[in-house]
Nucleic acid binder design. Structure first.
Lengths: 222, 222
DNA sequence: CGTATCGTTGATCTAGTTCAATAAGCGTGG
DNA sequence: CCACGCTTATTGAACTAGATCAACGATACG
């Protein structure tokens, strides 16, 4: 598919599930804008441990920093069928600051990525399994909502398997299942057949969202 | 100290231990370059849980992304006495690409930050306590080495308390202590009075460093 | 309609937490 | 110089969140 990308600059291209959008250390002269489907960037250990580092949803730039570094660092795989538009670096640089897919927009996406990683470092370091999952669900909801991908009654398509979820929040798949059971039985959400329905966003946020709590005092362990 | 910063653009300024280099949401028209001392960016929960997100060492740009977003997101505190040079955005933009403290250099630092966070998301999500600590020690060693701050025999000044270490690697201070005991008794390192001496870097790397292992197969939980 | 993937459940185990107490450093003022 | 108070390091004992193992049921899909 790399070949396709070379042949058809500024075009749309499609990846089947499990196909790679990027491989480690691959050269990149385009940024992708996901138009449909979900993709994930991950790191894998020889012993099988996997951690998903970044999730790409419809509307996201897939690796905006490629614009600056011209190279992928980690593999990116399609979690569903993915349709993406290729944005050659040149065409991005050519656009006026306030246009769609301009330099400014792409750099903003880099900053957003950086902030999102702040959040996940915190999550993985200091939140419980339930908190992490709630947090993820809220994040997905708000990102999907921002792209107008949430239907009535807070329903949205959530194609991640419980294995995927486990590899995002850094827990085991079995435990993901158990936490989801709890959230379901507490009436916070419904999740079946790749459709997520948030039933009690307030409570979900309370369980998962990180409080502002930017302590002004000297930081020290509790 | 914000006042000092306004009054003396392009100057050096000094922070005592526990003083803030930045507060959440503060406006920033300078990037700092740390000349001496260590600082940390962290997030704190009302219940006392703290996670250090970024560590700034001598030679590092402290929050290069301020150049792009003009604003801090999280508090940054001095872990030791810190001396830092103020680099106003204007002066950075004025420099030629290959100069010290040019736009290019600062953007490279943003990219490095992004990659370092990839690594830590992986660490926190999928590595054991021992692996995380070894990994951190190796990272500190190589960052200090890059700044010529490592003396003979792999000795370097490591001012982090065990509480700090705990809040970086996302485990409890007590457990940090125990893991360090193990590493000491295995003859991998020496650590006393804020001085770290790495005795067996090879073994330490093996325990902590992330193998390339970029699996080419379909990612799935082990 | 058979086969691989995905979800669910129970039982057992363990890495790491929490609590609590003590010891060792270390700066500061008298 | 010493005494005091505070921070940091160390250790043990009890506990728990979450992992691991294993089996089985449900889906989906070619």
């Amino acid at each position: 598919m790399t070949q396709d990308m070379q042949r058809t600059p500024s075009q749309v291209c499609v990846f089947r599930r499990h196909e790679f959008l990027a491989r480690a250390d691959e050269r990149k002269d385009c940024v992708l804008r996901i138009e449909e489907g979900w993709a994930a960037q991950y790191r894998l250990l020889p012993d099988g441990r996997r951690q998903i580092i970044t999730l790409f949803l419809p509307g996201d730039y897939c690796e905006p920093q490629w614009l600056l570094q011209g190279r992928a660092t980690l593999p990116i795989v399609a979690l569903t069928r993915v349709r993406a538009r290729l944005l050659p670096h040149r065409s991005i640089q050519a656009r006026a600051p306030h246009e769609e897919d301009s330099m400014t927009r792409v750099l903003d996406a880099v900053l957003a990525l950086l902030r999102n990683r702040e959040k996940w470092i915190f999550n993985l370091g200091r939140m419980t399994a339930t908190e992490r999952l709630c947090n993820l669900i809220c994040e997905l909801h708000s990102r999907m909502a921002a792209r107008n991908c949430v239907a009535v009654q807070d329903r949205y398509c959530m194609p991640l398997t419980q294995y995927d979820l486990a590899d995002i929040v850094g827990i085991s798949p079995v435990h993901v299942n158990r936490v989801l059971q709890n959230l379901r039985s507490d009436g916070l959400l419904e999740l079946r057949n790749r459709w997520m329905q948030v039933l009690d966003m307030v409570q979900l946020k309370r369980l998962g969202e990180i409080m502002p709590g930017q302590g002004e005092h000297v930081p020290r362990a509790a």
